[in-house]
Write a protein that binds this DNA or RNA. Structure first.
Length: 926
RNA sequence: GCUCGAGUGGUGGAAUUGGUAGACACGUCAGACUUAAAAUCUGAUGAACAUUAGUUCGUGCGGGUUCAAGUCCCGCCUCGAGUACCA
C-alpha cells in the first residue's frame, strides 16, 4: 500500500473527534500540564499559512507531554469581539454575531484539517453571553474593590466602608484619587450619595474625565496604536484630543508588583524588558517651588510641584518649565505675557501629542513672566512653558538643569538661558553632561560628594525642610476601559442619580440589546443608546459604553479550566488543579497589551482569593511572523511578452506581482498564468532552460500582493503531516521568516521514506521481529536523545532534521526491525500524528499511539571517537562519545584506556581520574 | 537616541560546556531506470590551487585570550524588532 495521506488523515481525524482522545482526564493523579495558544480573532480572510505556526508548535509540545505521562490541557477558542465585524455591520446592517459565527466556522474547518489535539469541548468565545457573563462578573469584583497599600493588595470595598465608619480616611493608605480627609463622624454625616462619590475615588474601576483620542467620524475613542499620522488607521478620519467621561481600571496600583514578578517568569528578556519600560519606574523626588508672580494676591501662596530623577542637580536649576496645559499657567502668567502665552498655547494645541512626540528637534517655549524661589539658594527662577514637557507625566512641570539634561540644554541654548555645571566631567558647554558619574560642585553643602551620596543627602534635606519627598514615578497610566462601540461586553452598570450601581449577579449576563443601526446616535452617544428600553428599562439607566477588546482576553485562560461551568467563572477544584498556563505560545506584539492586562487581572483575582497563582503564564515562547514571498513576472515594455527572471536585464521590463499559487519552485505555470486574467490570454514568454523563472521578494502576506498561501492548499496537496513538519522545518520558531514552498517536497519525501521503512517493494507491510544490531540501536538511541532535547528546548526545526537523518540511516541499513521502528513511531507521533497512528495500528496495536507513554531510554556511553587534542593543557582532556547500550563505570574506563587514539594522545601518562560529566563529554584528569 | 535580537555556502538553516564549521533540506550538476518524460534511486556540490593522495583560505570588519574561537573578551560596521521629549 502506498502512503495515502488523504485517507489516513481523514480517518484519524474522525477517530480522534469521536473518541475524544484529547480530553484531559478528570480527577487525574497524573501531573498537569497546560499548553495554550493565544486565541485568534476570527477575521473574514480565514487562516493563512502563518497562523498555524504557533499552534503546530504547541500541539507538538502538548502531544509530547501526554506521551511523557502528563495530563494535558490544550484548548482553543476565539477572541470574538472586535472592530472588523462591527464595521461590516455598519456597512451592511448584518449583525456582528452572524459575521463572527460565519468566520468562526471557517476557522474551525481550516484548523480541523491540520490535526490539532485540541479539546474542543472547552472552546470559548468571548462574545457568547455564557462567557461574557463572567467578564461582567469580574468587572463587578474590580468595581467593588480598593487597593490597600499597607497590605499591598486589593480588598473588598466593604472593608473600606467599615474603616471609614470606624476611623474616617486619615490613616487609610490606598491607591486613590485625591480625596479630602474626613473623620468617622464626618463620614456618617455624609449623604448616601456623597459617600458613594467618595468610594468612587477608591474603587479599582472608576469613572473620570480623561483626555482621549476621539474620532468623530467613527464615533469612538481610539487607542494610540489605532492612529497613524493624526488620522484614524481605519478610514483615515481626523482624530482630536477630547476630555470625556471614561471608565478606567487602576492598573497603576499594581505597577510595582507587575515589575517585580517578571523576574520569576520564563519569558524572553526582550518581552520582560518591554513591560518594564512600559511600566517605566523612575526613582527620584518631588519638590515644591514657591511661585512669585505679580498676578498672585499678596497673601496667596502657590507652590509648583516638580518630579525629578536628579534631585542631586538641584543647584544647577536655572529655570522651570511647565506643560502648556498645566493648571497654573493662567494663574501665574503676568499681564505683559498673557497674549504671548495664549498664542503659544493655541499653537501647541493644534499639534497633536503624536506630532509633538515625532517632532523632537524643534525647540519651542514661552516665558510666563512669573518666577519661583529656589528652595536652597533663594534665587528667583523664571517659569517658562514649553511643549517638550508633557502634562500627562509626573506633575507636568520640570525643574530645568541645562548643564545635565539634553532637552533642558537644547531649550536653554535656544532661549539663551543661564547654565551652571554642578557635576564634574563631561564636555560642557558643547553638550550636556547627563551621566550619573562625577563629583558635585557649585552646590553648597553637596560639594565634593559623589552623585549617589548627593542624591541621598539632598532627598533627606528636602524632606527635612518639608518641601517634598523621595518618590517613585511610573510611566504606566490607568487603563481606559470604555469604548463607544456596539460589539463588546456591556457593562453590568446602571445609573441612579448619576451614580453607577452594579447589577445583581442573578441578572447577569446583561445581554447586548438589538439595535437597528450600529452607528453612534446623532447626539454622539454610543450605539447602545439606540436600543429600546436600554436607557429606561424599569427606571434603570444603563451604561451605554462597552468594554474594550482586551476585557474578554484578560481571563480566558482561566475559563478553559472549567469552560462549561454555569455557576462560577471557574470551579475551585478545576482552578486548584490546573492553576495557570505552563506554556503559552503566541506573538510578541501583545507585550504591553494583552500580556500586561492578563497579569493585572490574575493578580487582582489572586488578591481576592479567587485564584491560587499570581501569574497567568509561567513560560512563554513567541513565535515569529511568517512573511509572504511574492513572485514577479517581467513584462517587456509595451508588449504582452514576458521575460524570464534571469534574462530580464536584456530588456526594459516592469515587474508584476503574480499569484504565488501559480508558481512552483519559482517556475511559472504558463497555462495557469494565461487563464488567470483575460489580458494575459495571449501572453508570450521568453524562457530560460525551458522554464519561465519568476523573481521573488519577501513582503508581508497580503491579498493585494498575491502572496497569501492558505494551509488548505498545502494539506490538499501534501497532507497535514507534511504541512506540520514543514512549518517546523522552515527555521527557528521565534524567528521571522518568509514562507517558501520550495523545500516542502523534501519533507514530503521524508514521510514517504518513513512509510517505506515499514513496507516492502510491493507495498505490503513488512516488519521483522529480529533483534536489532548494535548499529541499528545506536541510530535509534541517538535519535531519541536528540529529539527529546530538541522538543524540550523548542528547537523543532532541528528535530525534523534528526528524523530525516535517522530514516536515511535506517534505510541504508535496510532495517525493518520492530524493536527499532516502534519507538520511532512513538517519537514521531507528536510531529506527524496521522501517519504515526496509522503505522502504530499496522504494527498491530489496538490502542492508538496517542494513548502511549514514551519509553525512557537512558543512553549510556561508548567511546566512539576523540579529537586530536594534545595532552599538555590544564591536565584535562575531552572526548566526544556516542550512545550505545549501558556500560558500567568500570567498563567505561576500560574502554577509554583501550581506545587506540586515547592511548596515542595520553602518551603513556596514566589518568588519575576519569570524570563523567552529564551530556557527552568525558574529562580525563591527568 | 535607548533596549533587545541577528549577521555562517547559490538558498532556508545545523554546530553540545570553546573541541573535525557547513548537519538536514532546497537548488544545481552527473549517473541509473525509462522509447521518452514525470516519479524514484545513486553520487558530487564553501572557495582557490593540485585534479591522485593533497594544500591553502574560509562563519560581517579589526584586534585579543587559548593547544583550540562561529562560540569568550575589547573596539567597530550592517540589518531587523520594540520604544521614544517619561524630566
Amino acid at each position: 500500500m502506498e502512503y495515502n495521506f488523504k485517507s489516513i488523515e481523514a480517518k484519524w481525524r474522525k477517530h480522534w473527534a469521536e473518541q475524544k482522545t484529547f480530553k484531559p482526564e478528570a480527577n487525574s493523579a497524573k501531573p498537569k500540564y497546560y499548553v495554550l495558544d493565544m486565541f485568534p480573532y476570527p477575521s473574514g480572510a480565514g487562516l493563512h499559512v502563518g497562523h498555524p505556526l504557533g499552534y503546530i508548535a504547541s500541539d507538538i509540545y502538548a502531544r509530547y507531554k501526554r506521551l511523557k505521562g502528563f495530563n494535558v490541557l490544550h484548548p482553543m477558542g476565539y477572541d470574538a469581539f472586535g472592530l472588523p465585524a462591527e464595521q461590516y455591520a455598519i456597512q451592511t446592517g448584518q449583525h456582528p454575531a452572524i459575521t463572527t459565527e460565519t468566520n468562526i466556522s471557517r476557522y474551525r474547518e481550516q484548523l480541523d484539517k491540520i490535526g490539532f489535539s485540541f479539546d474542543w469541548d472547552r472552546e470559548v468565545r468571548t462574545c457568547e453571553p455564557n462567557y461574557y457573563k463572567w467578564t461582567q462578573w469580574i468587572f463587578k469584583q474590580i468595581f467593588n474593590s480598593w487597593y490597600c497599600t499597607e497590605e499591598d493588595k486589593a480588598k473588598p470595598i466593604d472593608s473600606l466602608v467599615a474603616r471609614f465608619k470606624a476611623e474616617g480616611n486619615l490613616l487609610i493608605k490606598a491607591v486613590s484619587d485625591e480625596v479630602a480627609s474626613f473623620t468617622a463622624k464626618e463620614w456618617s454625616a455624609k449623604t448616601k450619595k456623597q459617600q458613594e462619590e467618595v468610594l468612587l475615588s477608591y474603587r479599582l474601576a472608576f469613572r473620570s474625565e480623561t483626555l482621549v483620542n476621539w474620532c468623530a467620524e467613527l464615533g469612538t475613542v481610539l487607542a494610540n496604536d489605532e492612529i497613524k499620522d493624526g488620522l484614524s488607521e481605519r478610514g483615515g478620519h481626523p482624530v482630536e484630543q477630547k476630555k470625556m467621561m471614561q471608565w478606567s481600571l487602576r492598573i497603576t496600583a499594581y505597577a510595582q508588583r507587575l515589575i517585580d514578578d517578571l523576574n520569576a517568569l520564563d519569558w524572553t528578556e526582550a518581552i520582560k524588558e518591554q513591560q518594564r519600560n512600559w511600566i517605566g519606574r523612575s526613582q527620584g523626588a518631588s519638590i515644591r517651588f514657591e511661585v512669585v508672580s505679580d498676578e498672585l494676591a499678596l497673601d496667596e501662596k502657590l507652590d509648583i510641584e516638580v518630579f525629578t530623577t536628579r534631585p542631586d542637580t538641584i543647584f544647577g536649576v536655572s529655570y522651570m518649565t511647565l506643560a502648556p496645559e498645566h493648571e497654573f499657567v493662567a494663574r501665574i502668567t503676568t499681564d505683559d505675557y498673557k497674549i504671548a502665552v495664549s498664542d503659544y498655547i493655541n499653537k501647541t494645541k493644534k499639534r497633536s501629542e503624536r506630532d509633538r512626540m515625532s517632532d523632537v528637534k524643534t525647540v519651542s517655549g514661552q516665558f510666563t513672566g512669573a518666577y519661583v524661589i529656589h528652595p536652597f539658594t533663594g534665587d528667583k527662577i523664571p517659569v517658562w512653558i514649553g511643549d517638550y514637557v508633557l502634562a500627562s507625566y509626573g506633575t507636568g512641570a520640570v525643574m530645568a538643569v541645562p548643564a545635565h539634561d539634553t532637552r533642558d540644554f537644547a531649550f536653554a541654548n535656544h532661549y539663551n538661558l543661564p547654565m551652571l555645571q554642578v557635576i564634574s566631567g563631561g564636555n560642557l558647554p558643547t553638550e550636556s553632561h547627563d551621566g550619573k558619574e562625577g563629583e558635585l560642585l557649585n552646590s553648597s553643602f553637596l560639594n565634593g560628594l559623589q552623585v549617589k551620596e548627593a542624591t541621598a543627602t539632598i532627598i533627606a534635606k528636602i524632606e527635612e525642610k518639608g518641601i517634598g519627598k523621595g518618590k517613585i514615578q511610573y510611566r504606566l497610566r490607568d487603563a481606559i476601559f470604555s469604548r463607544q462601540r456596539y460589539w463588546g461586553e456591556p457593562f453590568p452598570i446602571y445609573y441612579e442619580e448619576g451614580l453607577p450601581k452594579t447589577m445583581e449577579d442573578k441578572d447577569l449576563p446583561l445581554k447586548l440589546p438589538a439595535v437597528e443601526k450600529y452607528l453612534p446616535t446623532k447626539t454622539g452617544e454610543p450605539p447602545l443608546a439606540r436600543a429600546e428600553n436600554w436607557k429606561t428599562k424599569e427606571g434603570f439607566d444603563f451604561e451605554t459604553n462597552t468594554m474594550p477588546g482586551w476585557a474578554g482576553s484578560s481571563w480566558y485562560f482561566l475559563r478553559y479550566m472549567d469552560a462549561n461551568n454555569k455557576g462560577e467563572f471557574v470551579s475551585k477544584e478545576a482552578e486548584s488543579y490546573w492553576k495557570n498556563v505552563d506554556l503559552y505560545i503566541g506573538g510578541s506584539e501583545h507585550a504591553t497589551g494583552h500580556l500586561l492586562y492578563s497579569r493585572f487581572w490574575m493578580k487582582f483575582l489572586y488578591d481576592l482569593g479567587f485564584v491560587s497563582e499570581q501569574e497567568p503564564f509561567k513560560k512563554m515562547i513567541n513565535q515569529g511572523m511568517i512573511l509572504g514571498r511574492s513572485n514577479f513576472v517581467y513584462r517587456i515594455k509595451d508588449t504582452n511578452k514576458f521575460v524570464s527572471h534571469g534574462l530580464k536585464d536584456q530588456h526594459e521590463t516592469t515587474a508584476i506581482h503574480v499569484d504565488v499559487n501559480m508558481v512552483e519552485n519559482d517556475v511559472l505555470d504558463l497555462e495557469k498564468f494565461r487563464s488567470w486574467r483575460a489580458e494575459y490570454k495571449d501572453a508570450e514568454f521568453i524562457l530560460e532552460e525551458h522554464n519561465y523563472k519568476c523573481g521573488a521578494e519577501v513582503e508581508k502576506m497580503s491579498k493585494s500582493k498575491f502572496n497569501v498561501v492558505s494551509p488548505d492548499l498545502i494539506v490538499e496537496k501534501y497532507g497535514a503531516d507534511t504541512l506540520r513538519m514543514y512549518e517546523m522545518f522552515l527555521g527557528p520558531l521565534e524567528q521571522f521568516k518568509p514562507w517558501n514552498t520550495n523545500g516542502i517536497s523534501g519533507v514530503n519525501n521524508f514521510l514517504r521514506k518513513f512509510w517505506r521503512l515499514f513496507h516492502n517493494d510491493k507495498g505490503d507491510l513488512c516488519v521483522s521481529e529480529e533483534k536489532p544490531s548494535i548499529e541499528e540501536l545506536k541510530i535509534l538511541h541517538k535519535t531519541i536523545k536528540k529529539v527529546q532535547e530538541d522538543v524540550e528546548g523548542f528547537s523543532f526545526n532541528t528535530s525534523v532534521s534528526t528524523f530525516m537523518v535517522c530514516v536515511n540511516e535506517l534505510t541504508n541499513q535496510k532495517c525493518n526491525k520492530r524493536e527499532v521502528l516502534e519507538p520511532l513511531v512513538l517519537l514521531m507521533c507528536s510531529y506527524a500524528p496521522h501517519i504515526s497512528e496509522e503505522l502504530w495500528m499496522l504494527l498491530g496495536h489496538k490502542q492508538g499511539v496517542s494513548y502511549q507513554s514514551f519509553p525512557i531510554f537512558k543512553p549510556s556511553v561508548l567511546i566512539e571517537s576523540s579529537h586530536n587534542y594534545p595532552v599538555s593543557f590544564n591536565g584535562k582532556m575531552r572526548f566526544k562519545v556516542e550512545y550505545s547500550l549501558e556500560l558500567s563505570k568500570e567498563e567505561l574506563e576500560k574502554q577509554i584506556l583501550a581506545h587506540e587514539k586515547t592511548i596515542h594522545y595520553l602518551n603513556g601518562v596514566n589518568p588519575k581520574k576519569i570524570i563523567i560529566v552529564p551530556k557527552k563529554i568525558i574529562n580525563i584528569v591527568l
